[in-house]
Design a protein around this nucleic acid. Structure first.
Lengths: 243, 243
DNA sequence: CGAATGCTTGATGTTCTTCAAAGGTTGTGG
DNA sequence: CCACAACCTTTGAAGAACATCAAGCATTCG
């Protein structure tokens, strides 16, 4: 049975901004259903014009993009609970990437045709949408800087750090330990590295006592040292709107 | 003297969506001034919380980001007329990148504090802001895929192609020829390549009769072949809102 | 049990980086 | 007007980081 927005478990997390009563009422109306997805399933397709928008209630996945005609693909980001999916199609009429589940997922479903009424009658929610888009833009800028400028060791460290921080902000992590249900190939595709080299780099991080990632669980043993190895700041996630 | 929005030369271009009378009236009020910038000048700083938003009226520049403590930098995108600057600070309170002029530039200046009133009373303009943010996100996704997956030759080809397409959409190009007032170092930093290798790759493209870039002018001799070399589609720019 | 999938490791190649230096252009001061 | 410094481009040579190839191991699943 569909979760009511007022009972949404995500709202309890400090990372998400609070709803006003009025916002809550609107969200309840905006939400048209709930969807459960099998692992390894495409949710949105690059180039498509999906009629639905989603907020991830539970589960993880990837955003990715194909390159050329061969089987090269770029993973743009990893999808976590609270993420909003389909905004590109929602405002531009076309997705720039594919979204795929890694675990089973449950999604809140919104009707895209309502998005315009949202802009007209709920400027605060519209503002939040812009915030989310700008936030994604900011993340992709960081990712670009990573792939373009950081060495493999720095890049893998950076990715592990960011993933841990996302996990922590969602209360998925205790003592630097969290589920990470992806394949090494996914990480490799996210960082523009080969699978083999990614594997060897992960081994190096483990050997240095920084990070262990095995059987779908990530453990960060030394966050400070990891941030150093990444040549990045250990900047905690900022609070964000939830749609 | 400041250009009135109704006289804005950019509005003549097909690439930009048309204004309604009401929008025009609002823009005239929203615009607080005009700014002229010297070449090689910082306009917005990464990490800052700028009180102003800009639309580029003329001139070109770069968006870039520092990495680590050394002098590594990633160029995220090249800035062209019609681009909107400062949206990240506008909605999130912090810029994720620095914007710097390459030529002298003139900018329309908007007051950031007006952005909330924009969301409240001009949903169509708010929608356009979201569109722009989503569009940047889409571009960065493509750039990420390029750096992550394409070879140097493909990447340079891709960049030249995209730059030409931007130039064409702004009527800056005739017969595949347009001004491109950047240094090879800028392109190298955009593609995550070394200056030397970028130079040699450009030489290869020239040798193959695809592209010449010298003295601040880009000439694309064979756009079809260039798109092929880039392993990318020759997809023309879509019409976009102008703020 | 065999097939499929993902992780790991070693050996070999190649793309790209780094180092080094020279040539062209522009601007500046003597 | 010349000397020079500063900046960008170009080219060659050497080295490193990463990719590719290949194979073995473990686990899961039908």
């Amino acid at each position: 049975m569909a979760t009511k927005c007022d009972k949404c478990p995500l709202r309890a997390l400090k990372i998400f901004e609070e709803f006003t009563v009025e916002e809550l009422r609107f969200m309840n109306r905006f939400k048209v259903g709930e969807l459960t997805i099998e692992p390894q399933t495409r949710i949105l397709m690059e180039g498509s014009n999906a009629p639905q928008l989603y907020t991830v209630l539970a589960g993880q996945g990837t955003r990715s993009k194909k390159v050329g005609d061969d089987d090269r693909r770029q993973v743009l980001n990893f999808v976590f609970p609270g993420d909003f999916l389909g905004l590109q199609a929602g405002v531009m009429g076309e997705m720039g990437h594919t979204v795929e589940s890694a675990t089973s997922m449950t999604l809140c479903v919104f009707d895209r045709s309502e998005i315009w009424s949202l802009f007209k009658s709920h400027p605060d929610r519209a503002y939040d949408l812009t915030w989310l888009a700008a936030s994604e833009e900011m993340f992709l800028g960081e990712a670009l800087a990573t792939i373009g400028q950081r060495s493999a060791l720095e890049a893998v460290s950076w990715a592990m750090l960011r993933l841990l921080e996302r996990g922590e902000s969602l209360d998925m992590a205790q003592n630097g330990r969290m589920p990470l249900p992806f394949r090494q190939q996914d990480l490799a595709d996210a960082l523009g590295l080969s699978l083999v080299h990614t594997n060897k780099t992960l081994a190096k991080l483990k050997e240095r006592g920084l990070v262990t990632w095995a059987e779908g669980r990530l453990t960060v043993h030394d966050k400070i040292a990891l941030a150093e190895a990444a040549a990045a700041d250990d900047r905690p996630e900022r609070t964000r709107p939830l749609i």
